[in-house]
Design a protein around this nucleic acid. Structure first.
Length: 665
RNA sequence: GAGCCCGUAGCUCAGGUGGAUAGAGCAUCUGCCUUCUAAGCAGAGGGUCGCAGGUUCAAGUCCUGCCGGGCUCGCCA
């Protein structure tokens, strides 16, 4: 509601400026006045026009208001302060619009097909809190895009032929002295007493330690890596077995949080289906790659780096002397794509993969069914020779890669390669959805029993490390959250049966976890702290869930359905007199505006803030107006409608974040 | 050395493309459960927005330079 009216307003002002002053502003800024009594929209445009038109801002504002005439949906326009124009909505009309809204809005992404890649955990160990941030951000962004009308393919890239998998293969072969069948048995019966991903978590840390004990050990690693890349040998088979088992564990972990995928493209197929060769041809042809004959990169195929700042190394020339320093010799800053031993680097493979995403490679994966969710949704995985009947992924125009900020450099290399190939539009629509890492506070690390050096103890946070086995596992955290929530639910609802209580505890735990990962903006490092993460009070997911439950309880007690209230008649004139109630309606009407803002800025945190603030306003309302004892029937009906409108917006805002609204709490 | 990010209340963080009086949660203190559930509400204290310049009607927000912290820069993946 809010967004549509704002767009109409902007159009109106745009037309008026053209007609009355013959000016066009690049954009018309719309703010909100400090309080809703002043109006719903504030336009500071007369300040901007003051210089252009050589008039006082206030004068301009008055002229504009005078020339505006009636605008549908609006009651009046007022000049305020030094020259703001405040627009006041017709509250009843706007409220009617809000009441009639469907749940999904026709957003900016309507009709678009978009590919989002997230999670992409190396398949050699259990998922940890850092991975959770990735998956929760990614999954929430998928939901936001869908809310804006997009059709979204969700991909989880699997690096199943990299060193990380090789390390665990080495662990099984040389530390545990286990062969293929023993590993298969281990996966099948779980005889170790811990899940396979947990088992590998520990083994991976042990192997990393073991490498430091001798150079021969590192040789085994390299050899195993080569075997895996090549395929068709025992280490490669073991690698596949491990990778598949771990991927299943990751899917199960993420499923607990309501996170699902459509397709798992694997590096093994990028290698074996020779994606690189096709990309290599294109890149040579278009001159994106060149063969270096000198310097440290002699014998390699290299690519000019986008960020390579030629100016950086140049000393400013002497005054008045503009001697251009002609670059002679090799560009030592270039990015190596093909090594002198003729093998391709990770970035090279990534370029090929991304050409495929945009449908520019001229080759496709094979597809095989891999996993089925309870709701019937299928996860497909790449394969050399796939099933004959399969959906097609890729060939989209817009992609989002949810990858942490440490990979900004390689991501930019891929984008530059695509741009260099002449795919300008695709390069523009390639979004590196970058976010900062999750780290542990020193106290948290010590509580977990890790040794923390004195130096590290002074730091604000310590980076988690799968290699060292240093971190909080996703399943462990979720288990702790569920246990904590269960305790609360048990004490509040002893009358409910065990399974029901467990279900609600799980919804609360997921709400707490997902909200926790979303409340911080992407650029802020999360210094993980159990006390905060396990909290259900204050700015948390359960706070918003609780507000919904309170609203639900009103309808339950009154034996009414919130949906019927929304559909029925209500007297909206109460909105005229009460700014606080109107503010609640207005805020509820801003949901689609928030969705668009989240997408435009790739920042899901705005949705989290919105949900919390709306819940806060609702709790305030709940406390102030005791609905069921209201004696004025018309007013009671109106308050019920208010609760229903806000409840609906709260539920929708939580849906965007993948958080359920429990029936009771 | 270069690039990216961060620095706002005791702590953790918000402050969309500059806009009206800098906010929230936690923590501390004071009130509020015979009411639609207190996982809640109301109130109090707490700020040189890292420092210094600049841009303009207007700067926490933009520019420059410092200071402090993090990450990244390999013929690893």
């Amino acid at each position: 509601m809010y967004l549509e009216l704002q767009q109409q307003l902007i159009q109106r002002f745009h037309d008026l400026l053209k007609r009355q002053y013959d000016v066009e502003l690049p954009r018309i800024v719309v703010d909100q006045p400090p309080n809703v009594g002043l109006g719903e929209y504030a336009l500071p445009l007369s300040f901007e026009l003051a210089k252009k038109l050589r008039k006082a801002p206030r004068k301009i504002a008055e002229e504009i208001v005078a020339g505006l005439g009636p605008v549908p949906g609006f009651d009046k326009f007022e000049v305020a302060g030094a020259g703001y124009i405040n627009a006041k909505l017709n509250r009843e009309e706007a409220a009617r619009l809000l009441l009639s809204e469907r749940s999904k809005h026709q957003g900016s992404a309507t009709g678009k097909k978009i590919l989002v890649e997230h999670t992409s955990i190396n398949p050699n160990k259990a998922a940890h809190i850092g991975h959770l941030r990735n998956s929760i951000l990614g999954d929430t962004f998928v939901r936001l895009l869908q809310a804006a009308g997009a059709k979204v393919d969700v991909q989880n890239y699997i690096d199943n032929t990299g060193v990380q998998v090789a390390d665990v293969v080495v662990g099984f072969l040389y530390l545990e002295k286990k062969g293929k069948s023993e590993i298969e048995a281990l996966i099948a019966n779980g005889s170790t007493g811990k899940p396979f991903d947990y088992y590998c978590w520990d083994l991976y840390a042990r192997v990393s330690q073991w490498y430091e004990e001798g150079k021969e050990n590192l040789k085994l690693r390299l050899q195993t890596l080569h075997n895996i890349e090549q395929g068709g040998n025992e280490p490669a088979e073991i690698g596949t077995i491990i990778s598949n088992a771990i991927i299943r564990r990751h899917l199960e972990t993420m499923q607990r949080l309501g996170i699902e995928y459509d397709f798992l493209p694997q590096e093994s197929e990028i290698l074996h289906l020779h994606f690189w060769e096709l990309a290599f041809e294109q890149m040579k042809q278009k001159g994106v790659l060149y063969f270096e004959t000198e310097g440290k990169n002699k014998g390699c195929w290299v690519m000019k780096r986008a960020s390579s700042s030629q100016n950086a190394k140049r000393q400013p020339a002497a005054e008045g002397n503009d001697a251009p320093e002609t670059k002679s010799g090799p560009d030592e800053d270039a990015k190596v794509i093909v090594r002198s031993n003729n093998t391709v680097t990770y970035v090279g493979k990534d370029i090929a993969y991304h050409l495929w995403k945009f449908g520019l490679l001229g080759r496709d994966f094979g597809y095989q069914r891999f996993y089925r969710y309870p709701d019937g949704r299928l996860v497909w995985i790449s394969a050399e020779s796939g099933e004959p009947d399969h959906p097609h992924f890729g060939s989209v125009n817009t992609i989002y890669n949810v990858i942490d900020s440490r990979q900004a450099d390689p991501q930019n290399n891929v984008i530059e390669a695509i741009r260099g190939l002449g795919y300008i539009e695709q390069a523009e629509n390639y979004h590196h959805f970058s976010y900062e890492m999750v780290a542990l506070t020193p106290r948290c690390a010590m509580d977990l029993g890790y040794e923390v050096s004195e130096e590290d103890q002074k730091r604000a946070y310590i980076e988690v490390s799968g290699r060292k086995g240093f971190g909080v596992k996703a399943d462990d955290l979720l288990d702790s959250l569920i246990a904590a929530a269960q305790k609360e639910v048990d004490s509040r609802h002893p009358e409910m049966d065990e399974q029901e209580r467990r279900g609600i505890a799980s919804q609360i735990a997921i709400g707490a976890l997902r909200y926790f990962m979303l409340k911080f903006t992407k650029n802020s490092v999360i210094a993980f702290d159990f006390k905060e993460a396990l909290s259900f009070e204050g700015e948390t997911g359960p706070y918003t869930q609780y507000a919904i439950v309170r609203a639900t309880n009103i309808f339950r007690k009154a034996d009414l359905s919130a949906e019927e209230i929304l559909a029925g008649h209500t007297d909206l004139r109460f909105l005229k007199e009460d700014d606080e109630l109107w503010e609640l309606w207005l805020r509820a009407g801003q949901l689609s505006s928030i969705v668009e803002q989240c997408i435009a800025t790739t920042e899901p945190a705005y949705a989290a803030k919105y949900a919390f603030q709306l819940a806060q306003q609702f709790n305030n309302f709940y406390h102030k107006h005791h609905i069921l004892t209201e004696t004025d029937e018309a007013r009671k009906r109106f308050l019920l409608t208010t609760a229903a409108v806000v409840r609906r917006a709260l539920i929708q805002s939580l849906e965007l974040m993948g958080i359920d609204a429990p029936s009771v709490m």
